[in-house]
Write a protein that binds this DNA or RNA. Structure first.
Ligand code: FES
Ligand code: FES
Lengths: 146, 146
DNA sequence: TTCAAAAAAGATATTCATGTCTTTTTTAGT
DNA sequence: ACTAAAAAAGACATGAATATCTTTTTTGAA
């Protein structure tokens, strides 16, 4: 509920690159999957989408891997949600079967509207860079398994 | 996202019974599925759970069907969520892989906490009776397809 | 130019929510 | 007792998200 596993993997993957790539070398999917305890090939597919959307860059071959793009840190979380989960959820009625519509509200419409708008607002204003805390030596733990 | 289809079916089903049962006869699953445009047998399974949890009552055989229980109208939406979706989602980290925990927060923890607590608060205080608006002749439309 | 490393792509498997179909149980009325 | 109506239960099907495995493409370095 709320968000898919894919979204969590995407965010953790991007944060991992943002945290470690500036140290020098590019980040390999193998290393990411190990450190984040995430299925390797599943993560690879998600990271490929990040590259297609210019949230990351990648190079193949020896010494290749993933690295930051010019816009990585400015990317809003909502962009990740769009990529991994899509936006339909935000204008589909909680009771299914119809587009959500304030002119024709279901009994739960205004309650859901408030909750969804709160989430939209939060994810629209928060960027990858906002979540990255390089000063915190335990940051890596906060995106991996305990 | 947010809530399953089962939850929507459950809420619409219970509201349908609450709206029409006081008129006299018990409500048959066939009629409900037709009017709500919901898969008949899938709805039947969900309504069975409602009965098991005392949110509705039912009787088999001729002239049988679903009817209100003493507590139907006081039932909180959160109870329906518990039955159809479970509560794990509310204390599972949005980044998967760990219990959500403010003492060991992931980068998105406090944002998600606010959103989830908002939803929990709303669903804890809102009851089936609160959503039922018998005065509104179009209420039936608001829980069915347009 | 060949080799090995790495992402990208493709094929298949698993799991879970959702959906359909059939059989069983219960019960009111005759 | 018998019959028919209705929920309950069970068996099976489908689709999407998740996960695993294999093959292809790209590329840096010897
Ligand atoms: S119409 Fe149902 S959530 Fe908006
Ligand atoms: S620890 Fe991640 S949402 Fe609470």
């Amino acid at each position: 509920m709320f968000l898919s596993k894919s979204f969590g993997y995407a965010l953790r993957g991007v944060l991992y690159v943002a945290l470690l790539e500036p140290k020098g070398n590019k980040i390999k999917i193998e290393q990411m999957a190990d450190k984040l305890a995430v299925p390797r090939h599943f993560l690879a597919k998600i990271m490929k989408k990040m590259v297609q959307e210019d949230i990351l860059t990648s190079t193949k071959g020896p010494y290749g891997g993933f690295s930051l793009s010019p816009v990585t840190l400015q990317t809003k979380l909502l962009h990740l949600v769009k990529i991994t989960d899509g936006m339909e959820q935000f204008n589909t009625c909680v009771l299914s079967l119809r587009k959500c519509n304030s002119k024709n509200p279901c009994p739960l419409h205004f309650q859901m509207l408030q909750i969804r708008d709160g989430m939209l607002a939060e994810f629209s204003k928060t960027s990858i860079g906002d979540l990255l805390d390089k000063k915190n030596p335990d940051f890596i733990k906060s995106i991996s398994v305990i």
